[in-house]
Amino acid sequence: MSLDLHVVIDALKTNLPDTILDVKTFRGETTLLIKKEKIREVCHYLKKDFDFKFVVDITAVDYLEFKRPRFEVIYYLHRFGPEFDENMRIRLKVEVSEEDLKVDSVVPVWSGANWLEREVYDMFGIEFVGHPDLRRILMPEDYEPFPLRKDFDVRDREASKKSFERALREGE
């Protein structure tokens, strides 16, 4: 591999100091915990200087029973190498607390982040500041709860009933 992951991490540490809070490796995958306010800056930097042109996935996890801040938003980036074996992947993470459910959107960096961020908003209620079109994507538009949160009650049908009845009323 022509470019080592350590080079990227060291460059981040020198050029954007105090952004990396933690580095973890599990099963050969490196995860960087990034300061929430700096995420767009880090993404811009990685795209511009290290050619991470491709956003593979954006998702979130709700660690309700485990820790505070409660949510983690996960970014999975890819860099195309000139050869197949020079491809590189990196995972970034930001922690989002329940009191301040806002993260800077990375749609200005990669337009492919658009639907991925909409899905995170739809499922977790995390707001992406600066997103051009932040609305629900899979659930009905007037649906209230956020289904992938851990405190969502799967047996509670009230919210879906409300949306369904509204749809019936308005369809007449």
Binding site: F26, E29, T31, R91
Partner: peptide, 28 residues
């Protein structure tokens, strides 16, 4: 722990992101 594994599905990259909390069920 958490892992992401991608395969080349006919339609493109299919990725599974699994988070385990040490129990028998995926946490996410």
């Amino acid at each position: 722990g958490e892992i992401y594994h991608a395969v080349e599905n006919p339609k493109g990259e299919l990725g599974y992101y699994l988070v385990s909390d040490g129990s028998g069920k995926p946490y996410r």
